[in-house]
Amino acid sequence: MDITRKDVEHIATLSMLNLNEEEIEGYTKDLQNIVSFAEQIQEVNTENVAESAFALDAYNVFRKDEVKESFNRDLLMQNAPSSNGVQYQLPPVIVD
């Protein structure tokens, strides 16, 4: 599998990352190496093998829908890069 710089530009867009020229070049090479390495898994015969999402069996883990004490809003808002104390502040999302 060949990774091209166009692939890297595409996945950077999907990942919400800007990459400069040097980074595109570097990551194209790195991803090419890593994906070629990952290619080995194709050798494993997985016919009739089920996928596992993680190592243990656990399905439909629910807890009761109860009102409980939640986070302290002031403490949460203190970490906001920009807020009025009770709301996060952003640039306009819809512009004409």
């Binding site: 994906v35 990952a38 194709q42 494993v44 093998v49 996928e51 596992s52 190592a55």
Partner: peptide, 14 residues
């Protein structure tokens, strides 16, 4: 080819 396959190999390793 990658993610789903790797999930199957995970089963085989386990």
């Amino acid at each position: 080819a990658y993610y789903k396959k790797a999930q199957k190999v995970r089963t085989a390793i386990k």
